[in-house]
């Protein structure tokens, strides 16, 4: 299925879902400057409180059948970037072995006390990737059986990949 068909299937079951438009072209841009780029996949924005229902439809609907979680990550928008509000984006990238189509899903969370349901029961591949996101951003995954630090050590202060993380100089700094 192409992008618009996938979106139509999703949208009829999930009215809260919306498509993320490609980055806008700046007005009066000089001709020699490159245009904003985004991959030609479908990007959708899911609502946090219905994320687990959305995930079930993404995985189990036979027309979608996104059985392969390629990647799971997050991004921190604390600095005003264009007109976006301060927030976390949890980013999922899916692939379907059956239909060979792809999907990007972004779930926006507030920056204070971010919480999102875990999808480990649907895609076990999310296990360590969710732990990595927790480790780096401090985003809690509800329902994850072992949501602990994975790459940093236990007791590390702060969340390193947050944009407002302040590095405390230690003996390794000159």
């Amino acid at each position: 299925m192409n992008n618009s068909e996938v979106y139509a299937v999703l949208r009829t079951q999930l009215p809260g879902l919306s498509e993320i438009p490609p980055p806008p072209m700046p007005v009066a841009m000089p001709a020699h400057e490159a245009k904003p780029y985004r991959d030609p996949y479908l990007y959708v924005q899911a609502v946090p409180h219905e994320w687990i229902e959305t995930a079930k439809i993404i995985k189990n609907d036979p027309r979608l059948a996104f059985d392969f979680l390629i990647m799971l990550t997050a991004a921190d928008y604390v600095l005003p970037m264009g007109n976006v509000q301060p927030r976390f984006d949890v980013i999922y990238h899916f692939y379907s072995f059956q239909h060979k189509h792809k999907l990007f899903v972004k779930v926006s969370l507030p920056r204070d006390n971010p919480l999102i349901p875990s999808v480990i029961s649907l895609w076990p591949a999310a296990d360590w990737q969710e732990r990595e996101v927790y480790d780096m951003f401090g985003i809690n995954f509800e329902g994850h059986p072992n949501c602990t630090r994975i790459l940093m050590w236990d007791g590390f202060p702060g969340w390193p990949l947050r944009k407002d993380f302040v590095h405390v100089p230690d003996r390794y700094d000159d």
């Binding site: 980055p23 400057e33 245009k35 904003p36 780029y37 991959d39 990007f104």
Partner: peptide, 17 residues
Amino acid sequence: RPPVGESYAQLEAPRGV
């Protein structure tokens, strides 16, 4: 200095995608 945007690239490395 790339323009505003996002990209996902992947390739077949010896150990996987």
